[in-house]
Nucleic acid binder design. Structure first.
Lengths: 231, 231
DNA sequence: ACCTGAACACCGTTCAAGT
DNA sequence: ACCTGAACACCGTTCAAGT
């Protein structure tokens, strides 16, 4: 019965930051952000709650590591296009897909934008901004704008998905929001009222990328002098 | 001693959602988000913790109401410019200033973007997008992009201010971030390393508005056909 | 109708004690 | 060095009881 049970069996029981983060991700994926507790995490790892603190500074550190892991994985499969514009769209797409699969990633990104995962996105975007031909002094602003848009959309999308997960389906949720919007005071909220009709049918991913395109168009337009010729 | 003490004295002691929200804002302003507790809020209102629940659904409701109050006040003083572009910049500026004064507003906006305050911003921006001459079908995407950028920047700025408030000053904080960035692996983070030098000297507000300008430029460029002539 | 405040069901985090 | 798990110092929220 215990044949084949050598010391690796023990090794598998060893704690490590990686194992902790993997377990945390499994819990977050399966039951959402509210379910991640040091107690249930410890139970799943068959250890004491305090043991986790040997490998992880605190809960924020754990969530940051989990988010960084997911974003790192998402970026690993983003092939670099020759066109910087297409590459930036691919980066944004990868982030969108990661959030679509795991709403907690979006929540974490928008809550703590300056941590590892955010820096990873910033770097990727910035490299393409440079490849796009944006002059040095403008690169910081341009990359920050795109990063901010991604994070802002991440927060909105994650928050919407959050509501969806707590009960009704996506279209039912959108319809309930649309119904609430359609009933606002027309003097105070003329725009939102009018837009409500488009809510149910709209495509989140397309809207996400449309925003990116607007900034890219603005960057391109800013270089009227020819400074942004593809090169 | 008790002359002049008529029933209004009693009235002042009455609870109401407004009084609760005002007290919550006072606590948030004075001691930050971590200090807002139903117990300390109740103490400040000289009542029991449970009494608050008669006027407020839960803590999320309280924070949403506080944020909506602040954004409403901020928008009350935003004069409409004749130029939609300038008005959108003024709206973004007002949000920036509100967050600059109260970091918790930024955190709340980015955490819960679809609540009252977010809707207020969305409406204001949307109206200007229409005034800008963006055709109907594109208005939703354009307004969402600007709202998302504002929320994304709100989150980043709030998170930075948060770190500042916990100890060191702003420039010291930026320098510590810059120092961390400057020391990253140059193969993995070439862009962030290079940009680190600009961090200490940069102007948050200018960067905030630069992002808005990029989207506006993108919107204008999108209407090459003349559809976006100022009208 | 509105308020009281004790009680409930949790949290993240710490830390003496073990191996 | 690493793990255990009870204990600490809190939370938001509920609810019987009061007025």
């Amino acid at each position: 019965m215990t044949s084949r049970t050598h010391k690796n069996e023990r090794r598998a029981g060893q704690l490590s930051k990686d194992r902790i983060v993997d377990s945390a991700i499994a819990i977050l994926d399966a039951e959402g952000e509210g379910a991640l507790t040091f107690r249930v995490l410890a139970a799943r790892l068959a250890t004491g709650a305090g043991a986790i603190y040997w490998h992880v500074a605190d809960k924020q550190d754990l969530l940051a590591a989990a988010t960084d892991h997911v974003i790192g994985e998402a970026f690993a499969v983003v092939a670099g296009r020759s066109d910087p514009r297409a590459t930036i769209r691919a980066i944004a797409s990868a982030v969108f897909d990661a959030i679509d699969r795991r709403p907690w990633v979006g929540a974490q990104l928008s809550r703590n934008p300056l941590q590892d995962a955010g820096l990873r996105i910033f770097e990727r975007v910035g490299e393409q901004i440079e490849a796009f031909g944006v002059p040095e002094p403008a690169q910081f602003n341009a990359a920050t704008a795109i990063l901010s848009l991604i994070l802002g959309l991440a927060g909105q999308y994650a928050s919407a998905l959050d509501h969806v997960s707590t009960g009704i389906g996506r279209t039912a949720f959108l319809e309930s929001v649309a119904a609430r919007w359609a009933v606002l005071d027309p003097d105070l909220y003329p725009f939102v009222r009018r837009i409500a009709a488009q809510l149910s049918g709209h495509d989140d991913r397309a809207q996400f990328l449309a925003g990116i395109d607007l900034i890219l168009a603005g960057i391109a337009a800013g270089g009227k002098g020819g400074a942004f010729e593809r090169g």
